[in-house]
Design a binder for these strands. Structure first.
Length: 469
RNA sequence: GGCGCCGUACCCAAGUGGUAAGGGAGAGGUCUGCAAAACCUUUAUGCACCGGUUCGAAUCCGGUCGGCGCCUCCA
C-alpha cells in the first residue's frame, strides 16, 4: 500500500517514504488548554487520527506525538492582548495549573469518545522548559537571535528559506514594517523565543533561564518537543490550516536554523470546519462542543461519521441538518451490520476475491490522500452487496473500520441488544395486542418504542426490534 | 494588500481530461393488519455563467458573477 499525501511544503501529492523503513513519526499540534475544544478543533484531530490509522494499516510502526500547550501565551507577538490561561484563571477563580489540568482532561475525554487513538507521547509544554531553553541556546550560538527590550527574538533574516512553505514574500513583509509597532524587532516578522518581561500581574508560570526569569515564546515548544521525541528530522508534522503562515513557518525557521538540517518531510494540514457565520470561534460565548452535540441527542460517532463524509482538505460547513443526515446514515449502516451478525455469524478469517475487491478499492482511496468519502462509499458497497456472504462482508467491514474507527465490531447482532425491562415489557404487551388484533394499541406502543429509540419490525417469523445507535 | 479555496441533483458530498461515487430526503413497486426494514425501480445528457484548447472537459486555459478561509491566540 503506497500512501500519497498532499504536502503543503510542495503543494502537491507526494508518495510517503519514511525516513526509516517501516516506521513513521508524526507530530500533531495539540490543544491550548484554556477552554473546551469546539467541534472544529476536533475535526482536525479526527483527520490526524485517520492519518495515523492509515499509516498503521499500511504496516508502519507509527509514533504519534502530540503537545499540550499549557503555558499561557500572549495573544500576539506585539505584547498586547491577553494571556488566555490567565484570562481563564481570572474568570473561573482556578489557578492556571488547575485550568490546564481540567481542560486537558476534558480534551482527552472528547477525543476518546470520538474513537481518536491516544497519541503514543503526550507532551506538556510546562514539562519541557529545559528543552526549549536548550534550543534557544543553540540558536544563540549559531547567531540567529538577538536581545531587545528584555526579550530574545529570532531573526528571520538569518534564515534563508523563511516563509517558503507559506509562499511568503519577504519584501512584502518588510514593506509592512512601517506600520508595525514593536520597536524591538529588527524585522516585523521576527518572533519571540523567550520573554523576560511579563506585563501581566500574577504571572505565575515563570522559569529561570540564561536570559532571566520568564517564559517561552509559543512556537518554541513544538520544535523542542518534536525533536526530543522524534529526532531532529522526522516524517510528518500536521495541524490545522491556520498554522501554515505563522506557527509552522516559525517552527521551521527555528528548528532548521538550530540544527542546520531539514526538519520535517511531510506537512499535512486539515481544513476548517465552519459554522453559519463562517469561522468557528470560542470568543462568542456558547460555542459548539462535543457535549453540546450530545445534549442534542447525537452520539460522538455521529460527528466522526459526519467528518468522514468530507475530505479533510475541504472546508466543511457545520449544520445540525447535515449532522442529522450523518446520524441517520450511520444508524442505517449499523442496522445492516447488525443484520449481518445475526444468527451467530462471525467475520471470516480470510477474504475471498469479491470482498477483497471492495477492500482493495477502499485502501486505494485511503492511500490517495485519505479520501474518506470514497472509502466510505466502498464500505457501503460491500455492506449491501448481497452476492457476498455475511461472514465475508463482516470481515471486509472490520478491515475498513481499522481506518474509519466507527466501532463496527461493537454493534450487537440484530435481536441481541441489551434491552431495559420497561421496553421489553412494552414489546411483549404489543405482541399481545397484535394477537388480539388490537392494532390501534399495537401502533400506539410502537410509537412509544420509537421514541425510546427502538425500531419495531414485524416479520413473517415474528416481531424483531432494534435499538438505534 | 499577501496567500489559498470553493460554486456538482431537494440536502450533505466525492470526482481534477474519457463521458457524473456514496449518504440523507423524495417517488413507484414487492412485502405487511398498517407500518418499518429489506429488495427492485426511480430522482443531474449535466457539474455558476461566457469564451477557448482538445477527438473528447465538471475536470485544462482566459474572463465574468457569487461565496469562503488564512495572514492576529485559535484546529
Amino acid at each position: 500500500m503506497n500512501i500519497f499525501l498532499y504536502n503543503t511544503m510542495y503543494r502537491e501529492l507526494r508518495e510517503f517514504k519514511p525516513l526509516k523503513d517501516e516506521e513513521a513519526g508524526m507530530y500533531a499540534c495539540g490543544p491550548t488548554v484554556y477552554n473546551y475544544a469546539h467541534v472544529g478543533n476536533l475535526r482536525t484531530y479526527i483527520f490526524e487520527d485517520i492519518l495515523r490509522r492509515t499509516l498503521a494499516y499500511a504496516g508502519y510502526r507509527v509514533t504519534h506525538v502530540m503537545n499540550v500547550t499549557d503555558v499561557g501565551h500572549l495573544t500576539d507577538d506585539q505584547d498586547d492582548g491577553e494571556d488566555k490561561m490567565l484570562k481563564s484563571s481570572r474568570e473561573t477563580g482556578m489557578s492556571v495549573w488547575d485550568i490546564a489540568e481540567y481542560y486537558t482532561k476534558a480534551f482527552f475525554k472528547d477525543t476518546t469518545r470520538l474513537n481518536i487513538l491516544d497519541p503514543h507521547v503526550v507532551c506538556r509544554a510546562t514539562e519541557h522548559i529545559d528543552d526549549m531553553i536548550e534550543l534557544v541556546k543553540r540558536l544563540e550560538k549559531r547567531g540567529h537571535t538577538y536581545e531587545a527590550g528584555g526579550n530574545i527574538y529570532f531573526s528571520i533574516d538569518t534564515f534563508d528559506q523563511y516563509g517558503r512553505m507559506a509562499n511568503l514574500n519577504l519584501e512584502d513583509l518588510q514593506s509592512g514594517a512601517r506600520i508595525e509597532v514593536d520597536q524591538n524587532k529588527r524585522n516585523p516578522k521576527d518572533f519571540v523565543l523567550w520573554f523576560t518581561k511579563s506585563k501581566f500581574e500574577n504571572q505565575v508560570m515563570l522559569w529561570d533561564s540564561p536570559w532571566g526569569k520568564g517564559y517561552p515564546g509559543w512556537h518554541l515548544e513544538c520544535s523542542a518537543m518534536s525533536m526530543k521525541y522524534l529526532g531532529e528530522q522526522f516524517d510528518i508534522h500536521c495541524g490545522g490550516t491556520d498554522h501554515i503562515s505563522v506557527h509552522h513557518t516559525n517552527e521551521i525557521a527555528q528548528s532548521e536554523a538550530a540544527t542546520g538540517k531539514k526538519w520535517v518531510r511531510y506537512w499535512c494540514h486539515g481544513e476548517f470546519l465552519l459554522d453559519d457565520t463562517g469561522k468557528m470561534s470560542k470568543s462568542k460565548g456558547e460555542f459548539l462542543t462535543l457535549d453540546l452535540l450530545i445534549k442534542h441527542g447525537f452520539d460522538p460517532l455521529d460527528y466522526r461519521y459526519f467528518c468522514l463524509g468530507a475530505h479533510y482538505r475541504s472546508q466543511l460547513r457545520f449544520s445540525f441538518q447535515a449532522l442529522e443526515q450523518a446520524k441517520t446514515s450511520r444508524n442505517n449502516l449499523a442496522a445492516r451490520i447488525a443484520e449481518l451478525k445475526k444468527d451467530q455469524v462471525e467475520a471470516a478469517d480470510t477474504l475471498d476475491a469479491p470482498a477483497q475487491a471492495y477492500v482493495d478499492r477502499f485502501e486505494a482511496h485511503a492511500a490517495k490522500d485519505l479520501n474518506m468519502p470514497r472509502s466510505l462509499s466502498e464500505l457501503w458497497g460491500l455492506v449491501r452487496d448481497s452476492s457476498i456472504a455475511p461472514a465475508q462482508r463482516l470481515a471486509g467491514c472490520y478491515r475498513m473500520d481499522l481506518i474509519l474507527g466507527l466501532s463496527l465490531k461493537d454493534i450487537a447482532p440484530a435481536g441481541e441488544e441489551l434491552l431495559d425491562e420497561e421496553s421489553a415489557s412494552l414489546i411483549a404487551e404489543r405482541e399481545e395486542a397484535r394477537k388480539d388484533k388490537d392494532f390501534a394499541k399495537a401502533d400506539t406502543i410502537r410509537d412509544i418504542l420509537q421514541k425510546r429509540g427502538i425500531d419495531i419490525k414485524d416479520t413473517p417469523s415474528g416481531t424483531v426490534w432494534r435499538k438505534r445507535v
